[in-house]
Computed example of a mutant assay.
Amino acid sequence: MIIKSPRTATIMLLLVSLFWGIEYVLIDLAVARIPSHTFNAIRFALAALCLLPLLWFSQKTTKPLPYSSLIRAGMLLGLLLFIGFYTQTEALRFTSVSNAGFITGLSVPLVPLLGLLLFRNAVKKSVWLSVITATIGLYLLTIGEHLTFNKGDTLVLICAFAFAIHIILTGRMVDSLPVIPLSIVQLVAVSVYSTSAALLSPDPAFYFPEAEPISWHQQLLTPVIIVAVLVAGILGTGYAVWAQSASQKLLKPHKVALIFAAEPVFAHISAWLFLDETLGEKGMIGAGLIITGMLIAELSDRNHPPQMRPLDKTAAPE
């Protein structure tokens, strides 16, 4: 499969935001029963397994893979994902979904800001306009009248920085490394990091210390855990990491961050459909501003279209 259209890449990332928005409730229910490290270890292992067939069917060259570069890059990107997903998952035990959604969305302004500070990436005025517009929209959509800051909010703030740096570094690495193997190495790395953290923790791996002891198979075979792992592992992790890496062959980091700002919009839509929750006036305005920010970025990029390149190369370019 070769994708050459930035529009297709945008749709792929919008689907990621959709899956992330839907899985919020499932993960919130899951981490109330199973520790975050254990949940993420299983989630990312499943995601890596799901991408193996894609690697097999995409082998169209006899070129050797750059294993050393892949492992180094994958371990670094995987570390950022490990930090981001652990802090976000753990934070849901202490803070509201609204606070988590907005603070995670701070990765939108952090991407161009950190790109400018770390790598001197040039940022157009239209980018700042779109970022500011989307950030205001995130605030109105998720916070409402006030923001209370607690331990969970601090964890989500760390998550926002980790995701922002991950987006920036992914944009630099996918130009020289094959997308599918890089995605798989990242996923395996997160699973290994999470497994190590679960084993090194003094707390039980499959239940919380204050809860009644339970065996691993009794815990993992409960419907809530099964559904959460399948949805988060296959769609919210396996597909998401591959889609982000592939799309960043064509899309700039700031635009990827802006598309991901749609995540709380989808979260609220799913809550409206399944939980009969409504956005309210501020929420509607916020959702509109997020979409406006994405449109500003899209229209400004039309004057400078990116170079079209195949995305699914399984060997590094010469």
Rank of each mutant, 00 (worst) to 15 (best):
A9F: 09
V16R: 01
F19R: 00
G21Y: 07
S36K: 01
F39D: 00
R43Q: 09
A47R: 04
L49C: 10
K63A: 13
S69P: 05
L70Y: 00
M75L: 13
F82K: 02
T89F: 03
S98P: 02
N99F: 10
T104D: 07
L117K: 09
F119H: 09
F119C: 08
A122S: 14
W128D: 07
T135V: 06
T135Y: 05
T135R: 02
T142L: 06
E145T: 15
G152V: 01
L157E: 09
I165Y: 00
H166A: 00
I167C: 06
I168P: 00
G171I: 08
M173G: 07
S176L: 08
L177D: 05
V185R: 00
A189K: 09
S191W: 02
S191N: 09
V192S: 14
S201W: 12
P202E: 08
F206Q: 01
F208D: 03
E210N: 12
P213V: 08
T222N: 12
A228N: 01
V241Y: 09
W242Y: 12
S245W: 01
S245G: 08
L251Y: 10
P253A: 02
P253D: 03
P264G: 10
L273N: 07
L275F: 15
D276S: 11
T278G: 11
K282V: 07
G283F: 04
G293C: 10
I296M: 11
I296L: 10
A297S: 15
R302V: 04
N303D: 12
D312V: 08
P317Q: 11
E318S: 15
